[in-house]
């Protein structure tokens, strides 16, 4: 059991937990993730470790409500405990002094790009970060990203804050302005990572992406998370989650992420029906 020590709502449907997990906090490196399970009936879901305090024994996760499990997770509060926390899983980000790096985070992808940007800055890279969201209210971790970046660029799809458009546009402007870039890191919705890679490929800019396929054990045992990279099947949980974005079959990944859409709906509806029944019972 791992206790939730602190809870913050970062935006509508986006929640941050600081969790008591001393061993994970001590071992974890940028780019790694945990798998958690809320309770005995729960599914195992992977979440990137957004930050960690080894001496305090705390890890931070940030998640968005997208289905039953994350919705249930968001109802938990400080003092509640998670049934299981496993980690740190996956390979850490390869960090070196590249020179100038661009770190791109889209939507909830800002949470996983943050520890990468932080580690890159620690390795004395020049860090330019681009973060984006659908609208201003949904933009998270701006302050943290500003702290770990030498330059922070922002975009919103609706133009309510920063550049009006996508993070891809901001990157394109950056490239067109003649900024010399040595390495790109991008984390966000699959379609965003695909578009970023399409752009960086034409400019020969090496690009690392962090993938988030469906996982079960996340220790290489089941293969649920297999992705095609350079024509070969890889397990994102142990071979990744980070890969050379120019070699990833994003279309395959998008399809695999949709595998359980029908059942996710069933699960969500059953959860809401259960909650309604509970409400009416308590009402009586």
């Amino acid at each position: 059991m791992n206790e939730i020590l602190r809870k913050r709502v970062l935006a509508e449907g986006v929640v941050e937990f600081d969790i008591d997990a001393p061993l994970v906090a001590r071992k974890r490196k940028a780019g790694q993730f945990i798998v958690l399970r809320i309770n005995e009936q729960g599914e195992r879901i992977p979440l990137t470790i957004a930050d960690a305090w080894p001496r305090k024994g705390i890890i931070r996760i940030v998640f968005q409500v997208v289905g039953k499990t994350t919705e249930h997770l968001a109802t938990l509060g400080e003092g509640d405990s998670l049934q299981d926390v496993v980690g740190p899983l996956g390979k850490p980000t390869h960090i070196e002094r590249f020179g100038t790096v661009v770190c791109i985070g889209g939507g909830i992808g800002i949470a996983p790009i943050y520890p990468i940007a932080k580690a890159l800055k620690g390795a004395r890279n020049g860090v330019i970060s681009i973060i984006g969201a659908r609208t201003k209210e949904l933009l998270i971790m701006e302050k943290e990203m500003a702290r770990t970046s030498h330059q922070l660029l922002i975009s919103t799809d609706d133009g309510s804050y920063g550049h009006h458009g996508f993070v891809t546009d901001v990157l394109k402007n950056l490239i067109d302005s003649g900024t010399s870039i040595d390495q790109v890191f991008a984390v966000g919705p699959v379609i965003m990572m695909k578009m970023i890679c399409k752009l960086t490929r034409t400019h020969d800019l090496p690009t690392i992406v962090s993938l988030n396929p469906i996982m079960v054990d996340a220790t290489g045992m089941c293969g649920a998370c297999r992705v095609e990279v350079g024509g070969e099947t890889k397990f994102a949980c142990v071979d990744g989650p980070e890969f050379d974005g120019h070699r990833v079959n994003f279309d395959g990944l998008i399809k695999r992420q949709r595998m359980y859409l029908d059942q996710e709906k069933v699960s969500w509806e059953a959860y809401h029906k259960g909650k309604q029944e509970e409400h009416s019972r308590l009402g009586e």
């Binding site: 009936q41 599914e43 293969g223 992705v227 949709r258 059942q263 996710e264 699960s267």
Partner: peptide
């Protein structure tokens, strides 16, 4: 082989046995 609906036996059995997917949606794993 990476099409949806193609499982390793490990995944198929882990979902059913360990995660109790046969009791879905009482258990969350599909």
């Amino acid at each position: 082989e990476n099409l949806n609906g193609v499982y390793s036996a490990n995944e198929y059995l882990t979902r059913s046995n360990l995660m109790k997917a046969y009791l879905f949606p009482q258990y969350d794993t599909p």
